[in-house]
Amino acid sequence: MQFTEEQIWQFLSEVQDPEVPVLNILELGIVREVLIKNDEVEVVVTPTYSGCPATSMINMSIRLKLIEKGIKNVKLTNRLSPAWTTDWMTAGAKEKLKAYGIAPPVYSKTNQDDLFAKPDEVPCPHCGSGHTKLVSQFGSTACKALYQCEDCREPFDYFKCH
């Protein structure tokens, strides 16, 4: 193999999330492992949501990126456990999301099993106000909820805790 593991990780950092294009897949925290065996590179990926349509697209982008770099033998492995959590997103990713107008996950301490738990308190990514309300638990993609700022009145996406 002409590449080191470190170089492979570098290549993977060039693969963007198709639905949140400001993040790459390392910042998203879905690449769990890179294994090099002879001339084969195996990339272990943990999907964000079970039915996320971006999953197969991300797998294809990883394959294409590595082929582009001259690695012909690429193996992609899906690993479900431990389940992906927004805690695996990097600190830098949160800043990038905010700059893009998406409120990053707030790492809620609320009990996930509590049916009557109050929704996460999310600061507005536009004006920074903490005076916001949940409009809908479900947003434009599986990973987002819809909020609105009560001060600047702007609606915004929230990358929900998972």
Partner: peptide, 20 residues
């Protein structure tokens, strides 16, 4: 619209689980 999206999101999660 919001609940239309919610229903589709839930459908997608369930289809993903089923395919596994």
């Amino acid at each position: 619209l919001e609940q239309d999206i919610a229903l589709s999101n839930i459908a997608l999660d369930l289809l993903g689980e089923a395919s596994h």
